[in-house]
Write a protein that binds this DNA or RNA. Structure first.
Lengths: 347, 347
DNA sequence: TTGTATGCGTTATCAT
DNA sequence: ATGATAACGCATACAA
């Protein structure tokens, strides 16, 4: 593989006619070397195409410039490109700062913790980026206890005194925007279909809907329904019940899958109603569904900035250790005005 | 981060009351050390939780035990979980062999090559895993020229004398299976909707259909159509034309997206026909679409085995440097028998 | 079978 | 401002 890696500090030093150390300084502490020699050294570096050996540097500095990111098995019905795009954004942001992302696969939290242990002592990772955090996540406790730098994409739900840095998307702001949007279209009977209580993300999103309903003086009581899973069929059945029960003109949904369930139920009942999803997945695009796009790439960038600060690089920047980003409303075909049937003829 | 990494070969040696070297041998050449001392050393290792420092080992052996994998930007309409699942399978397979996957982001082939260069000299990757290979892929030439070990997920289309190892899914076998399946359902007027000529993958898949049609003595001539993009709308329009032109009872499609276009077109024309897609994406699941599932995880495992062999680890195993895996037919609701009436206007 | 010496490429300490 | 020296943790060649 490598007739490569022959270019070392030593050879650059020889080429620039300085000592090895001066070359090192030129790279790591440019201000301490005389401008004249600095440029000469930099020229040599460029000419020889020198790249410092990460292994040697790591051995010396105890910093690998590598962040760990764990991959969970992809569920069969995952049509979100969220994880996909997050990790891409992360990798890109990282390499702009001289960092790299190392992958490891794990099936559950416990397995993942085992991997942390191995990675920290063996591969010397500088930190971790966690996703899919949940109530009482043992990974967070484990890492925090050992003072390992990490950031989570997802709030520490139900643990207000968590002190680690995190980034999250404002679910409530998203459904609030969707609800306002439907109201502006003329809807008043706006229902909500979401996940059961207890999921932080689900509760957050429902709040956005109920708050805005209250703010607008619209009735929300009883006008929502739970669906047990994030799959379309249960959602369709739940939606069918919801439609019969409260006869809404529009439904705000906790996810695109659930929204698709609503669309299916409405088709089956021969109704025409407005629907909004959440995530801007491919499903939403295909269904022409109004939905909320998560600022995934930006989240990744912020997350990266936060871990790096925790690690000690980049001590400048904002002091906050949390970032909460608003999703963006994407208006498509399911944003239809209310059916003028039961009321006046205001077309 | 690390009050960690204090456990070194030295400390294990002290604990086991042997020399540093014996500990090293116990790990790297267990057969050369006396069983008695071996167990004592291994106990010490376990007790102290020793993990060799990758950096130090890499510095010495010039092997990082790390493979590079490049991430491209995720297209907005990507509803495939292929890449997702491939990289997960890769990471899992790698870590079973003591290897890790390192990510890097790139926008195009040229940028990716720049990254190779940097990664090879700086981070000392042992090899690369490439996906999305295409005609005249410059990355392949670059890597091959420098004797960098790598494997591609995707055949070297149009370059029969390529010598690098690769893994691929047998597209022709997939569409062949779909065509036979439709024939078994009773269909005889089986059309095909695919991508334009020139894409290796697309041509391969079309071949499977046309070969089986010939084999079954069914007419294929003119009974297929191209659609310019892998998006649903162009596919729908192309499908509409196809349906009018050859009035098929079933359509084999090059992808799930394209198949969805056919479904939409059939709906619009009030027809009821059988459809098969390709990829078993979330879209196929949601649409209840019969499709072909790619053996993604297995592909990743094979790919890993092939690079590792190229690197020099694991010299045992089959001699072949190529693997071609058959996709699996997933039968769902769009596998309907032919309409018994010549042509009714379905409501 | 086990122990000793050396060097991988870098940065940190210290002297010049 | 620059250069010499040591050490990071490991594996390898060689000596015992």
């Amino acid at each position: 593989m490598s007739a490569r890696q022959r270019v070392t500090l030593e050879s650059v030093a020889a080429h620039a006619k300085v000592s090895r150390q001066t070359v090192s300084n030129a790279i790591n502490a440019p201000d301490v070397v005389k401008p004249e020699t600095l440029t000469r050294v930099l020229e040599s570096i460029a000419e020889l195409g020198y790249q410092p050996s990460r292994a040697a540097r790591q051995l010396r500095t105890r910093r690998s410039q590598i962040l760990g990111y764990s991959l969970r098995p992809v569920p069969a019905d995952a049509h979100g490109t969220i994880g996909d795009r997050f990790v891409h954004g992360l990798a890109r942001a990282a390499q702009q700062r001289g960092y790299r992302i190392m992958l490891f696969a794990s099936g559950n939290d416990e397995e993942e913790i085992l991997q942390y242990d191995e990675l920290l002592s063996g591969a010397d990772l500088d930190g971790f980026v966690l996703t899919n955090t949940h109530h009482g996540d043992p990974r967070i406790a484990w890492l925090a206890e050992r003072d390992v730098p990490f950031v989570t994409f997802g709030r520490p739900w139900g643990n207000a005194d968590a002190t680690h840095p995190w980034v999250d998307v404002d679910g409530a702001a998203g459904t609030a925007a969707a609800t306002r949007h439907l109201h502006e279209l003329g809807h008043t009977r706006i229902a909500y279909l979401g996940w059961p209580h207890g999921s932080g993300v689900g509760d957050d999103r429902r709040t956005g809907w109920s708050d805005v309903m209250a703010e607008l003086g619209l009735p929300a009581d009883g006008r929502w329904q739970e669906t047990t899973e994030n799959a379309t069929e249960p959602a369709r059945d739940a939606a069918a019940t919801l439609l019969r029960r409260v006869s809404p003109g529009a439904v705000v949904c906790v996810s695109d899958s659930v929204a698709l369930g609503v669309i299916r139920a409405a088709e089956a009942q021969g109704r025409r109603l407005a629907v909004t999803g959440f995530d801007d997945s491919a499903v939403a695009l295909l269904a022409g569904m109004t939905t909320l796009a998560q600022p995934v790439t930006e989240s990744a960038q912020r997350a990266l900035a936060l871990v790096l600060r925790d690690i000690g690089v980049d001590t400048v920047g904002p002091a906050s250790r949390h970032e909460i980003l608003a999703p963006q409303l994407v208006v498509r075909d399911t944003s239809i005005p209310p059916d003028p049937l039961p009321r006046t003829v205001g077309s």
